[in-house]
Design a protein around this nucleic acid. Structure first.
Length: 259
DNA sequence: ATGCCACGACTATCGTGA
C-alpha cells in the first residue's frame, strides 16, 4: 500500500498539478495539507471520479487537511484532541484496512514564526497535544502513522543552509527538542530509516530562486509506530514535481507499506 | 534590514506562509 503526504498550498490553485501527480504516482492514500478551503468548496467529485474516497477537515482561507483513499475510510475523526478552543483545521484521522488495519493521522503542524511570540507558543502547545495523541497510538501497539507537514527541520543536514534557520521556529532548539520528544516515544521516521545524508528536501521557497539553487529544507515527515515500521518497504520524495508548472512549494513524500 | 513569491480574501491591498 502506497501512502503519500503532500502540502498542496491551496486546492483551488493545485487542482491540475495534484490530479496529474495522482495519475502518475497512483498512491492508495494521499494525506493533504493546506487545502485552504472550506469543506463545501473542496472539489471532491474530481477525485471521486479517479476512484478516491474523500474526507476533508477544511477552514476558510488557511490551513485545512484532507484524506484521499482508494480504500474505504473508517472511523474518521477531525481535529487534534486536547484543546476545544482550537479552531484551526490541522488534523484528521482515519483507518484503512489492507491485509491488516492501519490508523492514519494527517497533520499540518503550526509554523510558529515569528519566534518568540504567541504563534510560537501555539506551536509548542500544539506539539504537546501531538505528544499526547502519539502516546495513545504507541499504547495501542498496532500499525499507525502520523504524516504531514511538521514544519520541523529535524537536523542541520535537513537544510541546505542550516545557519539561516538556526533561530527560526522550524529549526530552533526547542522545536527540535519537542519533535524528538515525540520520536523518542518509539516512532520510526520513515525517510531516515531508508536514506542517510544531506541534500534531501521536501520544501523550496518560491522566493529568490530557491528551487534552482536547491536551497531546500526537509519538513514533511512520516512517523511510524513499531508495528507500522515492521511493514516499511520504501520511502521516497517526489522531488521532480517541484520543477513543474504552477507547483506547490512542497513536494509529495510517500511510503510503501506491506499491507 | 527588508523584500524577494505565492495563495486566498476581496477587488487594492493585506495577512500568512517558511
Amino acid at each position: 500500500m502506497k501512502i503519500a503526504t503532500f502540502n498542496i498550498n491551496g486546492i483551488k490553485a493545485r487542482v491540475n498539478a495534484l490530479s496529474d501527480w495522482l495519475d502518475e504516482a497512483q498512491p492508495d492514500v494521499a494525506l493533504l495539507q493546506e487545502i485552504k478551503s472550506v469543506d463545501e468548496n473542496f472539489p471532491r467529485e474530481l477525485f471521486e471520479e479517479k476512484g478516491y474516497n474523500v474526507e476533508t477537515h477544511g477552514q476558510k482561507s488557511f490551513n485545512g487537511v484532507a484524506i484521499l483513499s482508494k480504500l474505504p475510510l473508517e472511523d474518521v475523526t477531525r481535529g487534534l484532541p486536547g484543546d476545544p478552543e482550537d479552531e484551526q483545521a490541522r488534523w484528521i484521522e482515519a483507518t484503512v484496512v489492507g491485509k491488516q488495519a492501519i490508523r492514519l493521522c494527517g497533520l499540518y503542524l503550526p509554523n510558529g514564526n515569528p519566534r518568540p511570540g504567541p504563534k510560537y507558543d501555539y506551536k509548542l502547545a500544539w506539539m504537546e497535544r501531538l505528544h499526547a495523541r502519539a502516546q495513545e497510538l504507541m499504547a495501542a501497539e498496532a500499525p499507525a502513522l502520523m504524516a504531514g507537514d511538521y514544519n520541523i527541520i529535524p537536523q542541520d543536514e535537513d537544510a541546505a543552509r542550516p545557519e539561516v534557520w538556526q533561530e527560526d521556529a522550524l529549526a530552533y532548539l526547542d522545536s527540535r527538542a519537542a519533535y524528538r520528544r515525540i520520536l523518542n516515544l518509539g516512532f520510526t521516521e520513515a525517510f531516515r530509516a531508508r536514506t542517510q545524508g544531506p541534500e534531501h528536501y521536501s520544501f523550496w521557497d518560491y522566493q529568490a530562486g530557491a528551487w534552482n539553487r536547491n536551497d531546500g529544507i526537509r519538513i514533511d515527515h512520516f512517523l511510524l509506530t513499531p508495528q507500522a515500521a515492521d511493514l516499511l518497504v520504501d520511502c521516497q520524495i517526489d522531488k521532480e514535481i517541484r520543477g513543474r508548472e504552477k507547483p506547490s512549494d512542497h513536494v509529495p513524500v510517500w511510503v510503501e507499506l506491506d499491507l
